[in-house]
Design a protein around this nucleic acid. Structure first.
Ligand SMILES: [Mn+2]
Ligand SMILES: [Mn+2]
Ligand SMILES: [Zn+2]
Ligand SMILES: [Zn+2]
Lengths: 139, 139
DNA sequence: AGCCAAATGCAACTCAGTTGCATGACGCGA
DNA sequence: TCGCGTCATGCAACTGAGTTGCATTTGGCT
């Protein structure tokens, strides 16, 4: 299934912004921040507001999952999009040195009981520290 | 053990900003954002920069725990400070309607394995949605 | 009391993300 | 394939959390 078909399947208009951004995210093997996406050549000429709005609509459509890092910056991820399923129900690791986030796949988030009467729309778990690569560079 | 003694025990100078803010956090039964703290009368005349720096030093000293909500805003918590222990190793719930966060105590965060060679300095889990009170107000 | 390092206050700044509005393009039906 | 309504885009201006530089004050100690 191709990126343009996925957009159609979700009832989203197929624009260049959406196809390009979704393609970038689908090929990345980690969640990308707005800034990292706009750094890619295919998205370089997109207006920053358009990119924000594109990410929002892809996220609402469920084509990408979204995590807010402890640095306050959103990361968006669609790897493994071929299977048309990217639940994002796993923890994420954020390196506070280089800012790269990674999905800790294969580890489910635990069930958590919330205060009575509350409605849950989502959850996220972020582990933070310094990645192996940055630790080496430190020394 | 009194608030001023705790500051001393952690090697922090006892200033009005720190005693007042720590007292506010110790009496609250939920994590408070910068804005919520500055709204309290005892902290109302503090400069906003001083409040930010105060929260940072209390956090570094381990007197309060800190969580970044999915709204990108920091919350600080020191309830149960009497016991001089506030690990914060529990999930938190954030109501996206009223912005109130609550500690889901008694539920430990799961152990998560991270990429080889990475150093972990912390972790946080945020469940978000709408609290019971706001759900009632909706209808 | 007197000293010094650390904390405060103020102004200016950074940076992610949002909003309003005019223009342009996708999708669909004729 | 043309035309139209709706939705997406681009640009500018804005918001709001958090930070930084620097001069002034104050807590802790002798
Ligand atoms: Mn992920
Ligand atoms: Mn807590
Ligand atoms: Zn790193
Ligand atoms: Zn609420």
């Amino acid at each position: 299934m191709d990126v343009r078909d996925m957009l159609q399947a979700k009832g989203l208009r197929r624009t260049r912004a959406r196809t390009d951004v979704l393609a970038i995210l689908a090929e990345a093997r980690r969640p990308l921040a707005h800034q990292e996406i706009s750094g890619q050549t295919e998205a370089a000429d997109l207006d920053r507001v358009t990119l924000y709005r594109t990410l929002t609509s892809l996220s609402k459509a469920g084509l990408v999952h979204q995590v807010r890092g402890v640095d306050g910056v959103h990361r968006f991820c669609a790897h493994g999009l071929g299977s048309m399923a990217c639940p994002g129900n796993h923890p994420h690791f954020l390196c506070q040195s280089c800012g790269e986030m990674s999905c800790l796949e294969g580890q489910e988030l635990p069930w958590v009981s919330v205060p009575a009467g509350a409605r849950v729309t989502g959850k996220q778990m972020v582990i933070y520290g310094v990645c192996a690569q940055c630790r080496d560079a430190e020394a």
